[in-house]
Amino acid sequence: MSKYLLNKFLFTVDRDPELVERYRAEPRATVEWWESARANRILGCHADESSTWLCFEDAEREALAAHDYPRLFELGAHPFLTLTLFIAMFERDHPPLGFQTEYARRLAHVRLPYPDIAT
């Protein structure tokens, strides 16, 4: 399981306006491109000094490709990163705070303790 890589996807997409729109419009293609081109990029290093070992597990890749944020929560993705990016993509389709309350409703089945988010 690679909670770190899930978080890295959410983190790097969220901070790039062009990638936010691309992930909203074409989630599966964006996830595939990102995993092949960006997953191993160390953020503070030159591209020639990338890592060699990072990849998603199938369930992680599918959750991202399906915009399935309840599943990302179950997989232990950092809830702040998931929330921030999904607000950026979908708040615009709802009345004020409507997306945030729907988000809570879709997680209403979750009980404590929540999935471990330690990486």
């Binding site: 809830p79 998931t82 988000y103």
Partner: peptide, 9 residues
């Protein structure tokens, strides 16, 4: 709560 079921109450 952020990104969980108890958010934005």
């Amino acid at each position: 709560e952020l990104g969980g079921p108890r958010q934005f109450g």
